[in-house]
């Protein structure tokens, strides 16, 4: 059995950012005293959630609080999250609490990578969000991707029409192409990556830059 490890949200975000994939600003808070400094550094509203390798379903554990808009709110959220986690998951290893800038509503996409036993890294793109499997509006290609492959991936899903301007939409297709090409480069340079899930990745109209909100990366331990 291959042994694996998971990059936490912050590590995954940093790795993806370093490959030119924009990610929502995320800061780790390791003690209550740091909240004040963090509050001055971020743009409200923010979301706070537990950072723990042992808690996969954070919402169920009461470890996610949305729409916080002041230092006072951050302090309360910090205490609530830790209390809930102590009650609901007493065994979990706690690395801190994440403060992440909340993103305005945009078009939710998913970007993913899976390392197939036969084909190696396979890239996935499509409609993101919580119903991603149910909607199953995704396309796939083997890495490495050419620009044409990336374009075909977009055009193959229902999003193709959205990016071509259906109903007056003005999303930037180039931004998606770049994320796909960057992901392809990332896995070419890191064969140890087994899975990547960026869901949702939000894109906006009228030139506003999009960003990934949640990311998971699974790697093979050597």
């Amino acid at each position: 059995m291959m042994s694996t490890f998971v990059l936490d949200e912050v590590e995954a975000g940093n790795l993806l950012s370093s490959y030119g994939i924009p990610m929502a600003k995320t800061v780790i808070c390791e003690s209550f005293n740091e909240l004040d400094a963090i509050a001055r550094d971020v743009t409200f509203p923010v979301v706070m959630k537990i950072l723990s390798p042992d808690i996969l379903h954070k919402t169920d554990a009461g470890a996610v609080i949305l729409g916080i808009s002041s230092l006072d709110g951050m302090s309360k959220a910090y205490q609530t999250i830790l209390m809930n986690v102590t009650t609901n998951c007493p065994e979990a290893l706690i690395k801190g609490v994440i403060v992440q800038e909340m993103q305005s509503k945009g078009l939710e996409l998913i970007f993913g990578v899976n390392r197939d036993a036969q084909f190696g890294h396979v890239l996935l793109f499509g409609i993101g969000g919580i119903y991603v499997e149910i909607l199953n509006a995704v396309s796939m290609r083997l890495a490495p991707l050419t620009r044409l492959d990336a374009l075909e991936m977009i055009r193959e899903t229902p999003l193709g029409k959205v990016f071509q301007g259906a109903r007056g939409a003005r999303y930037n297709e180039e931004e998606v192409i770049q994320v796909l090409l960057n992901l392809s480069r990332l896995v070419q340079e890191h064969p140890e990556i087994i899975e990547i899930d960026i869901n949702p990745f939000l894109v906006y109209e009228h030139g506003k830059t999009g960003c990934g909100v949640d990311a998971l990366i699974l790697c093979e331990k050597d």
Binding site: I110, G112, V113, N114, D116, A117, Q118, F119, V122, L124, V132, E133, N136, V138, M140, L142, E195, I196, D197, N199, L216, L218
Partner: peptide
């Protein structure tokens, strides 16, 4: 483990 792997079974690949 992930959405991606659940949607990329061998035949789909």
């Amino acid at each position: 483990n992930s959405h991606t792997s659940s949607m990329s079974g061998s035949d789909k690949v």
